[in-house]
């Protein structure tokens, strides 16, 4: 009960901070707007009906961008902002544990990422018959969680919000661009298969092409493997210096 109380307090703090940050709040709506805009542009010559390839591009772009920006940048910059404004130490000396701070910090971005992922499906106009909802739900949850944990790592490494962006953007390029351009090069496709965003891309390609998608053992291994690796990296960094280096 006490834990839940503190967890709720951290989540409330994070919500109040993030909801007052226009740059961060605009991100998810920008992704939805971009998907909607691209759907209209891509469909100009085909009476609004997208060919499978264009639908795949649209879904990949929207979903991977949503997962990466919400996770890497929202979570990372929120922690960096607390460091910059000297509120992180205040929070950590108010009886909040590292775990409570961790969960409280990722709760809102995680839920928002999953919700926006579903909204993207709806905005893209893809037929729901082509989508395997349980698989989408599972992969979406795992990928969002991984990106939030990576965001926590970004937050530990960064001292300022600017710094968090500097660390977050290269990661964003790697995790977003490699799966997106996987169709253009065999090398990139091979690498993409080992990225959590690559699993998302593979799934959305199947949906767009009307092929039944089942979560394969390799996909599960990639998702859980990367979740464990990112959690371990986070733990090692947290144990070394806490959230803030002295």
């Amino acid at each position: 009960m006490e834990n839940m109380n503190k967890l709720a307090a951290v989540a409330r703090i994070k919500w109040l901070c993030v909801s007052r940050n226009t740059a961060v709040m605009i991100g998810p709506f920008m992704v939805l707007g971009m998907v909607w805009g691209c759907k209209i542009l891509y469909g100009l010559r085909t009476d609004g009906k997208l060919v499978p390839m264009m639908m795949a591009v649209l879904l990949n772009l929207g979903i991977t961008m949503n997962i990466c920006t919400n996770g890497f940048l929202t979570v990372g910059t929120a922690i960096a902002e607390e460091k910059e404004k000297h509120t992180l130490r205040v929070l950590m000396t108010s009886s909040i544990t590292g775990m409570q701070y961790f969960i409280g910090s990722i709760l809102y971005p995680f839920v928002l990422t999953v919700v926006i992922n579903f909204a993207i499906l709806w905005v893209s106009g893809i037929s729901m018959e082509q989508v395997s909802i349980p698989a989408y739900f599972l992969v979406s949850i795992a990928a969002s969680l991984i990106s939030c944990v990576i965001g926590m790592i970004v937050g530990i490494c960064a001292d300022t919000q600017m710094n968090a962006n500097l660390i977050g953007y290269p990661l964003l390029i790697v995790f977003m661009m490699i799966p997106m351009f996987g169709n253009m090069s065999d090398g990139l496709r091979r690498i993409s298969g080992f990225l959590f965003t690559g699993v998302v891309t593979k799934m959305t390609d199947c949906f767009a092409n009307g092929v039944k998608y089942t979560v394969e053992p390799l996909d599960i291994a990639v998702l859980f493997g990367e979740l464990i690796i990112s959690a371990l990296v986070f733990l090692v960094m947290y144990r070394r210096n806490g959230y803030e280096k002295d």
């Binding site: 409330r12 109040l16 901070c17 007052r20 404004k85 000297h86 509120t87 009886s95 909040i96």
Partner: peptide, 18 residues
């Protein structure tokens, strides 16, 4: 530090919750 974008009341009520 304090939470600049929050009100004075919110700054205390958050810690009151903790």
């Amino acid at each position: 530090g304090i939470y600049d974008k929050m009100t004075v009341w919110q700054n205390l009520s958050l810690f009151a919750q903790i």
